[in-house]
Design a protein around this nucleic acid. Structure first.
Lengths: 347, 347
DNA sequence: TTGTATGCGTTATCAG
DNA sequence: CTGATAACGCATACAA
């Protein structure tokens, strides 16, 4: 006895089917469907009825082949953590109301995957790309090629300095300065910086801000208080332990992300250091978890949602322009959110 | 003086361009590109060279129009929180190695958006859909229509009971029982259940497990200890306050998600209730935040990544089958992770 | 081994 | 108001 198997249903109806069963030409159907002026109301109604009856759905692929655009935006992000998930929502928001569909891919912090994703999205004929680079990406020739080919492109957050493209970024320098200034005001003088990988541009911009703030307050720069580590909690934990074990006792740690701050917090706790009494702590990103930690974590807040929205707006602007617009960079301002982890003095 | 404007670059090269500049026919080019057996090695090399020289990229849209499939999978999720972001990574993992691209859309817990997304993805000719339903979705006719049209479909996590489709779900009943059993063993006898909206099937399955566990232990069911609220922290906070104010003092709260558990935890803390001494707490999802709370949160862990992978596998299986496979449901088992918030007794 | 012709579903141009 | 027909970029059956 054969397995229960339902049959494949009939192929989807096309305008051709509508035309045939109505005895009119396909061009008439095409026009009727698209609400053209010069079409007999009766035939139009008949077409619409038949379309409904046959459950007609326009084939976007065929349409794209003709019009050469798909009304879709390719988005490539390194991962879908809180920050990027929020930014993607921002992109989605704007895209949706403009009638665009957002196709999101994760590069998983891999250069190879970023290239694959770029290739695939492009072959799928997305109308352009909004990209945040993977941490492993140092060579941006693949992005450069896009621009050469005239593909609309907007980079956000993780951008390449040596690429002359439209960008949306955070003022990382300023964010770091806010954090360090705050720590200074709290009486901290030996402020450590827990950084990401040395190749990571965002991390370096924040480092510059950190250094600038130290200079501004006449504090010496102690290279031993600047630690680089991979971008996850476990590495931050080890890096912090190392820092404490080295005898370089800091009285504050500023980290390049909340995730690293969490690693640092756990290490501090493990070593019996009180936060903020012994060591104050400030993170970056202001993820929801910040307010749930004990102590609650001070953090530099990024307008992730806004960032996504702006990126999408710039993208659409570029798309709708006749000529290629000269690249520009929008810089958004971060805001320091002070919580318990850095409050040594009550005001 | 006119604005600086670069010109639009030339249109992308097609096989036709290659053919013309080589003086061969397009079919020869087509065959050479795809490594067909019967093509002269010399011409083949010439084609490949020219393709590189012209920076030829195959037009996926045109190809799709012919082959009737796009090698892409549409994914619709209610949001991109930790659970879904992880599940999407799982889908991505499997899809990538099978040569498929994943196009992710968020319904934002909106029924309307879910329909729009379905429509758009379908018109983009994705080869099928992997969907987790929005919380606002009660009518699943749009999914039913997909199935009628023979569109491969896999539902995961948030599925519809009245839809005979292929599904990947968690054994929610079992997860809830594990949680309540554990609380019972810890000496809790007045165990409250903080539920999601009454229409929410996952919430109800967990409720059934909760009730079953109570029965199993001979505990009475107290309807006042079952509270429904919206799916966010703020509502959970209010609901918990209400529960405490009502005089129905529970000695444990089991919540339908970690997010609700956090709301409950904050409310308990605010009311001066100690966790776990006065009220034990167990959440659901085991998000990373669980181990960062104070006290650390016991939670029922879902294999989100695995769930995504299985969903993608079932999807591909369906896609590669000649006939339409009879729908089946894969049930994954949750694991209770015990942490401080529910440990009244040290073993 | 290579070329020709046709079709995928739709829009657009040009005649009726 | 309506109908042919070419075109979009590619694959493929059929010829040569």
């Amino acid at each position: 006895m054969p397995l229960q198997r339902r049959e494949r249903p009939a192929k989807p109806a096309t305008i051709k089917d509508i035309a045939r069963s109505l005895g009119v030409s396909i061009s008439t159907v095409s026009r009727a469907m698209r609400d053209f002026p010069d079409v007999n109301p009766d035939t139009k109604q008949a077409v619409l009825d038949m379309a409904k009856q046959l459950d007609y759905q326009p084939n976007q692929v065929a349409l794209s082949l003709v019009t050469r655009h798909t009304h879709s935006i390719g988005v490539i992000v390194p991962n879908l953590d809180y920050f990027f998930a929020t930014a993607v929502r921002g992109i989605d928001e704007i895209a949706l109301e403009a009638g665009y569909t957002v196709l999101t891919c994760q590069s998983n912090e891999s250069y190879g995957r970023e290239i694959t994703n770029t290739q695939r999205l492009l072959n799928s004929q997305v109308d352009g790309l909004i990209v945040s680079l993977s941490s492993a990406t140092s060579n941006v020739d693949h992005m450069r090629r896009l621009m050469t080919r005239g593909v609309p492109l907007v980079l956000f957050d993780r951008v390449a300095t040596d690429l002359d493209a439209t960008k949306v970024v955070l003022d990382n320098h300023d964010g770091a300065m806010q954090a360090v200034n705050h720590l200074f005001e709290q009486g901290c003088r030996r402020i450590a910086y827990l950084a990401g990988p040395p190749s990571f541009s965002i991390s370096n911009q924040r480092k510059d801000g950190y250094l600038a703030a130290l200079r501004q307050h006449g504090l010496p720069v102690n290279e031993d208080l600047i630690i680089h580590c991979e971008f996850d909690q476990a590495h931050a934990y080890r890096a912090t332990e190392q820092l404490l074990a080295s005898g370089q006792q800091p009285d504050a740690i500023f980290t390049v992300s909340d995730r690293l701050a969490i690693g640092a917090l756990l290490a501090l706790r493990h070593r019996g250091q009180r936060v903020p009494e012994d060591v104050a702590l400030v993170g970056f990103n202001d993820e929801p978890v910040a307010s749930l930690l004990t102590p609650t974590l001070s953090s530099v807040s990024q307008p992730a949602f806004e960032m996504g929205k702006v990126a999408a707006q710039l993208f659409l602007e570029q798309l709708n322009s006749e000529s290629i617009l000269p690249p520009r960079t929008i810089v958004l301002k971060p805001v320091l959110v002070v919580r318990e982890s850095s409050l040594k003095r009550r005001p």
